[in-house]
Structures are given as C-alpha cells and as structure tokens.
C-alpha cells in the first residue's frame, strides 16, 4: 500500500459518502443517474467475488464490503425511498447501458489474464468501470443542473482513478516486474472520460461561480 493508492481509496470512499449525504440530507437525487449507480453496483459485484474465497487484508475486505453496501443503499434510496424516488428524473436518465455492458463483456472474453469465470468477470468489471460514469455525464448535459454536491461527487469519483494512475507509476518503479496492462489502459481511459468534466469543474471553481456545462 502506498500513499497514492490510499489517497485514491479514501477519495473514492469520500465521493460515495458525499453522494449518500446529498441524498439523505436533501431527500433528493435530482441530477443523479441511477444507471451509473447500477453500473457501479455491477462493477463491485463482479470485481469483489474474491471476497468469498481469498483474504488479502482486513482493509481490503472492509473496503469492499463498504463499497458494496453503499452502492446498494444508494440504489435502494433512488428506487424505493418514497420521497427520494420521486426526485429521480427517470425520463432524462435514458442512457442505453447495454451498449456499455455488452462490449465490455465481449472485450473481457477476448482480452483477459485467464479464461476462468472469476477472471473474466473481474476483467469485465475493470472495463465497465471505465465507462460507468457516462450515463451520469450525459444526464448532466441534459439537465444542466450540476448542484454542488453532485459536482463534488463526480469530481472525486474521477480523481480517485487519477490517483490510482499515480499509484501504478509508483508501483512500476518500486516493485520489480510489476505490470498490469489491462488495469492501466482501462484506468487511463476512465480518467480521460472525466477530463471534459474536470475542465468545467476547475473553471467554475477558479471563477468561484456555480458550475455550468456548455449548451
């Protein structure tokens, strides 16, 4: 564990906490894409199957359980909570997620470390996470309302993987022979997907104004 990876994990955890707080405090999920939340739940389920058969560390196990529990809690709020679910803009959150899931799964079948069920599912989760934010970014473009907390949520969610990129560079130079091409390429694509959002987020922050996305 290095400081970059720890910072990445904490940023990831914080992003989820911010989203949960937004939903619980404001009793509203306006501007939040349920599709992205469901894609992330799929990412966590397919990636953390090893919870059942391999123990890495207490930290690793606890974090995986927290990510799984919070992901399903957010989905429960957006689908079932009587007040919150009325604030979900269903007609705007229409991204065809199958166009993300199917290509990622096919790619996981073609490019992976080993043709086993858990390895293919794990690889699928790596590819899917790279594009899971797309429904959320599309929803922002459509609804234009980037409220502060949702903006912070997306910013931190993008930042965590950028910190992981630094972690991979660090590990490459400090751990002899350490290589993870699949994760590195996917993580780079994932971070690039956020670049446009980062640009407008930082601009709004520097001008100390509410974030607005172009027409």
């Amino acid at each position: 564990m290095n400081i970059f990876r720890l910072a990445g994990d904490m940023t990831h955890l914080l992003s989820i906490i911010v989203l949960l707080l937004k939903i619980q405090a404001t009793k509203s999920c306006a501007g939040v894409s349920l599709k992205t939340q469901e894609l992330y739940a799929v990412v966590f389920v397919t990636r953390y199957l090893d919870l059942f058969y391999s123990f890495i560390s207490l930290y690793n196990t606890v974090m995986k359980i927290i990510f799984l529990l919070t992901a399903f809690t957010i989905i429960w709020y957006m689908r079932k909570h009587k007040v919150v679910c009325q604030t979900y803009d269903k007609e705007q959150d229409t991204f065809r997620v199958l166009f993300l899931i199917v290509p990622c799964f096919v790619l996981a079948l073609l490019v992976n470390h080993e043709m086993s069920v858990t390895e293919v599912l794990w690889t699928f989760s790596i590819y899917l996470e790279a594009v899971a934010i797309l429904p959320q970014l599309v929803l922002l473009q459509r609804t234009k309302n980037v409220d502060n907390l949702t903006g912070n949520y997306i910013f931190m969610l993008g930042s965590y993987r950028a910190l992981y990129l630094v972690n991979w560079v660090y590990r490459y130079f400090t751990e002899l022979g350490y290589r993870q091409w699949i994760v590195w390429v996917s993580g780079t694509v994932q971070t690039c997907v956020y670049l446009d959002f980062f640009y407008y987020y930082v601009q709004a922050w520097r001008n100390n104004e509410r974030m607005k996305l172009p027409g």
Partner: peptide, 10 residues
C-alpha cells in the same frame, strides 16, 4: 505478460 499477482487493489 502481466504480473499474475494477487489482486491486492480495490
């Protein structure tokens, strides 16, 4: 090929 090391990252 990639380090088939244990998946220690989240």
């Amino acid at each position: 090929d990639d380090t088939k090391e244990v998946k220690d990252e989240l």
